[in-house]
Design a protein around this nucleic acid. Sequence first.
DNA 1: CGTTACCTTGAATCTCCTCAATACACGTGG
DNA 2: CCACGTGTATTGAGGAGATTCAAGGTAACG
Lengths: 254, 254
Amino acid sequence: MAKARKKADKTPVPTPCAKCPLRRLEIFRKFSAEELAFVSFFKSGELVLEAGSTIFSEGTNSPHLYTVLSGWAFKYKTLEDGRRQVLNFALPGDFIGLQASILDVIGHSIEALTDVTLCVFPREKLWSLYEKHTGLAFDVTWLGAREESILGDYLLTVGQRRANERIAFVLLHLFHRARQLGLTRGNAVALPITQELLADTIGFSLVHTNKTLKQLRRSGAFKWTGSTFELVDEGKLEALVGLTVPVGGVRPFI
Amino acid sequence: MAKARKKADKTPVPTPCAKCPLRRLEIFRKFSAEELAFVSFFKSGELVLEAGSTIFSEGTNSPHLYTVLSGWAFKYKTLEDGRRQVLNFALPGDFIGLQASILDVIGHSIEALTDVTLCVFPREKLWSLYEKHTGLAFDVTWLGAREESILGDYLLTVGQRRANERIAFVLLHLFHRARQLGLTRGNAVALPITQELLADTIGFSLVHTNKTLKQLRRSGAFKWTGSTFELVDEGKLEALVGLTVPVGGVRPFI
DNA sequence: CGTTACCTTGAATCTCCTCAATACACGTGG
DNA sequence: CCACGTGTATTGAGGAGATTCAAGGTAACG
């Protein structure tokens, strides 16, 4: 089956919104028929990028905004001398580039961690979304508020937690988000994160991150070799973080 | 003039939105007559609190959301053992508690730094704002996006900058915001910030903050004694921060 | 095989933290 | 008016925590 297209045919095959695999996940709310129709109209295409591609550059603008259909990306800011701070990760269902559409400039860069597929939405249509679909407009605001909430968690982490707590926080956060999206198999995830990226996320040097990680591994709370991360003792990591790591509840998808 | 009310009369006198002093500031966009009427309808009262009052508590909910009419507040999160991270400051024109209305729980606490006056908006009416006034709904999203943008700046600061750079960043940021709102006299502002609060903002201990501050003062870039902060050499501070500190452009007010 | 990207480890150094003590301003009650 | 408490600012000293430099080591890829 599914042999209608020849192998050589590289024409992209955009996923119709009605069949979007994300919408089946229970963390996304159900759309009405009208909303679904509008989203289909809103979506103007798909963008496929390979790992390492820059999706947005800090300080720029864009005629598009995106939603992650598959793959991982990360948002970051840099200082002139090269110091880099990771702000957050973007997983399937996340909005990307909303700041550019709303604020006229985006305050951070975004780079693909894995090969990614993005749904493309033209910026001009965002206004009609607000005009015609209050529910979807609310969803956009919701996504922004959740982003703000996560940034607050990260700021608390980077500002106040110690090295092992920071690592525990980030690993748990990513694991929880991945699990919500059905990206885990058992207690394992494919984490496309290098230690250097982790270091830039928690605000420590690579060396110190590595040493703390080594010490943390001895606790047996998790295994992380190669690209697969396995959560062995969730409670042990949570204890380090202090409280359950919030992920962001059940809500929308555009 | 203005003797219509007796001194003993303590009944609050809510500012009508049409005469809102903030609307005169050029950083706020102009409202149409309909928008102004709606905002007046949206606003259900004013809340006056003295310095030190808690406006929101992390993890709670509220039937109201607020806007700062006058005074300063700050948003923060705490760990169980008491470590505290300041996320951002709220100045006149800022939304407060939007997360509680959109996400159902607010992720941070908010406390008044000075005596404050807040405009009160009932949460239920937020939906009708989205339904009937696309422009205002967009403004709400804009405010959320700006908040996210500022949080990103702070995260970069706390994660990557060194002590003196962090202090320079925060002081400049607050000065710029205050200036935008006409809160400065010449190069001076009344900064209602203690060193302890600054320490919790930049993620350092009070002692280290104090010592870094001492060293920074010697550069002559600013004076900060008692509650008045005076920016003497803006360029010198900006050089420390690396680039001009963004404040958030010209846009809405609700 | 040689390159490249990532992980690991040791050693020296500096940054930042905690503890502790003092100083100053302010407001309160005696 | 003074004694006292409270909140804030300041300073020194010693130690823990992070950084940088430097050197391997390993796995993937052409």
